[in-house]
Design a protein around this nucleic acid. Structure first.
Lengths: 338, 338
DNA sequence: GTGAAAGCGCTAACAG
DNA sequence: CTGTTAGCGCTTTCAC
């Protein structure tokens, strides 16, 4: 038998309003009454219906998370950190991903318009400008994660792709004295990829190494394009001494191709990646890469979003934050590593 | 400005009931009227409030997923497949995991009692019997995934752990003629682990190899316990010729320990795992393991659950299904593999 | 302090 | 075919 607030009220000999107050507000109810009610709630295992509550309060106490995809531990870690942080604040989390049949914009619009969530965390490295307009028009607070550009009224938090790439390349140059440094890029239009590429270029410039377009290969963040990228680079007359793969998955592809083609890492060519995925520590030699603080990203995203929602800071300055990354040295860059 | 069903009705010059019907039922509305309404809905970007709808219909069209944890690609893949399948049926998915502060039972009870979902998929390899009672008492349909035992009234779907383990060990014996086969077990009380252990024992028995308790080590499914397990096994006077790690993570630990201690796989000792995680294909040599059809598991879980919910098959026989696994041959068992 | 009653936005009889 | 109306379960004024 479904037990509702009326049953509790009946058994306690009070009105439903009092039950509601006892459960929420707090001190507007006589302690004795409250105690009695809570006891009965306990006995009956009464759980207030959150749907009804949401409808009445016009707030759901849940945040939506819109992701480009639902694959890999990277997103899992992100979700996990969001979930934990939300739970600490007694909020719920609704995950939405762009399905095969549906793109991110639709997902976002439906989520914001539906009243199903009070705010959303949007991770969209390939965000079109259209999206920012939609968000600015909406009354639902949104925080952008790993998006490019800066928007006047939207909170934003991201990882320091530029610096990460810069540090990798600088490490190649300063520590190992490599001059011919190739890069396997991420996909066009992907903001993470573009920032990483820009970090690569800056480092070269800083150390007065001329940009050589034969060393710049396009990839799209998957293993396969790492294989192709590596193969292309190493099949040239003059080979690179080092290759920066713009993410670890492509670095994995590079390892595969190296094995296939008989190149030794780092003796024949050094490799570095970006992301510090779990797998990267098991590659032989361990991959030199950039650690991305994904957990911190999730936690902070929740914090700022909740701030925006509950503190009614709807009009305050947009928050913009870039999280620092960290160079993780493995053996693939030429450093000795055990 | 929030736009609701009244605004649509007003603009269309009909009652809200008609709008509702035009949007839902279908053919009880004059085509002309319907068309007009739909046009206005479009214009206004009206999205029916799912909260209100749920309250009214007493159904949410969302399924809950309760997981032991939110870590690793295994769960990510599971979630992904559930999400896709649910989306195909226009259902939503709510993910709940046992948080650091809260156990799986509480999570389950709250979810079932709240009215937030119409049914739940519960993955609980360490399920206590208490849970099955709770489920049987509840009116919310639940499907159990990867749980031990069989319960009269609860749908259940799982992976064939027993057969998987059996096949691995049989492969060791029949193909490679190993006699001394060690095992690094999963945690006590974990059903997957127990079934795998039982498969191991059966295979030994079948081929008339005596059980040797010095070859049986306890682990708990993490890398660390793989390291310890391997080390323990290989530090004995008489070493095993092969080791079956009850999951891939522990096999990874075994690889690490092997490298540390200077053992070559598979020459000094053969290794096999279980799960076929993404990482396992990048180990050198590639790990021989058991592929678990996680995607199929998710899809079927959704299908049976929706069946139970929508077809009102609340009383029909409980569905019990064991999904077949598949032996994946790498080089770690001694087979040649490129 | 507590109760009565008016919604929250929508669906589903019940009339017409 | 379409409108009227009574809920769905809860929160929240407004009275008392």
């Amino acid at each position: 038998m479904k037990i509702d607030i009326h049953k509790v009220a009946l058994k306690a000999g009070v009105s439903i309003a009092t039950v509601s107050r006892a459960l929420n507000g707090g001190e507007l109810v006589k302690p004795k009454t409250k105690e009695k009610i809570l006891k009965i709630v306990e006995e009956l295992n009464y759980i207030p219906n959150p749907i009804a509550r949401s409808l009445s309060k016009q707030s759901t106490e849940t945040i939506g998370v819109v992701l480009p995809d639902l694959v890999g531990e990277f997103f899992m870690d992100f979700i996990h950190s969001i979930d934990e942080e939300a739970y600490k604040n007694n909020w719920h989390v609704l995950i939405s991903s762009s399905h095969s049949q549906r793109n991110i914009i639709e997902t976002l619009i439906e989520l914001m318009g539906s009243g199903r969530v009070d705010g959303v965390i949007l991770m969209a490295p390939q965000m079109q400008n259209e999206v920012s307009e939609i968000i600015q028009k909406s009354k639902t607070p949104v925080i952008l994660v790993n998006t490019c550009g800066e928007f006047s009224k939207i909170d934003q938090i991201k990882v320091d792709n530029y610096k990460g790439a810069y540090e990798v390349v600088e490490h190649f140059i300063k520590v190992h004295n490599y001059k011919r440094i190739g890069i396997i890029n991420g996909p066009k239009g992907n903001c993470d990829a573009e920032e990483r590429f820009s970090g690569y270029l800056s480092a070269l410039k800083k150390y007065k190494i001329a940009k050589d377009s034969s060393l710049i290969i396009n990839g799209n963040f998957d293993v396969e394009s790492g294989v192709i990228g590596f193969t292309t680079l190493m099949n040239q007359e003059i080979r690179p001494e080092a290759i920066f793969a713009a993410n670890d998955m492509m670095a994995v592809g590079a390892y595969e191709a190296a094995k296939e083609l008989g190149f030794k890492i780092p003796n024949d060519v050094a490799i570095a990646g970006f992301d510090d995925i779990y797998l990267s520590q098991f590659l032989l030699p361990r991959l030199t890469t950039i650690h991305v603080p994904i957990t911190e990203l999730g936690i902070k995203a929740v914090k700022f979003l909740l701030n925006r929602i509950t503190k009614k800071k709807r009009n305050s300055e947009a928050h913009f934050e870039v999280l620092p990354i960290e160079l993780v040295i493995g053996g693939s860059c030429g450093c000795r590593y055990s």
